[in-house]
């Protein structure tokens, strides 16, 4: 499943990354090297094998629905690149 500059551009958009046209060919070639290595997975006989998400098959625990963490809004906003009046600032989204 070789990928070309066009696929790189689509995937980069999904990942919200910018790929310069000048780097696109070199990047496609690196990604193809990685995918060629990964394609060894196709050799495996995985019929009837359930996908494994956790080695000990542990399930996520539930906790009581109570507030357990302190409110650190001010601390969180202090490290934001741009904040005002208790909110994160972003470029205008709604005209």
């Amino acid at each position: 499943m070789a990928i070309d500059s066009k696929v790189v551009a689509q995937v980069a958009h999904l990942a919200r990354l910018k790929v310069d046209q000048a780097d696109s060919d070199a990047l496609s070639s690196r990604l193809n090297d990685i995918l060629a290595m990964v394609d060894q997975l196709q050799q495996a006989d995985v019929a009837d094998v359930a996908p494994m998400a956790h080695p000990l098959d542990v399930t996520q625990p539930l906790r009581d629905d109570e507030v357990s963490e302190p409110n650190i809004r001010d601390k969180a906003l202090e490290i934001a690149p741009a904040a005002e009046d208790g909110c994160f600032l972003v470029p205008r989204v709604i005209e």
């Binding site: 696929v7 995937v11 999904l14 990354l17 995985v46 094998v49 494994m52």
Partner: peptide
């Protein structure tokens, strides 16, 4: 990019699901 590709529509079974198997 590799991760986004492997999880994207049409490739999930061939890559991610198979890797988890």
């Amino acid at each position: 990019l590799v991760g986004t590709y492997a999880l994207s529509a049409g490739y999930y079974d061939a890559y991610y699901r198979r890797a988890q198997q």
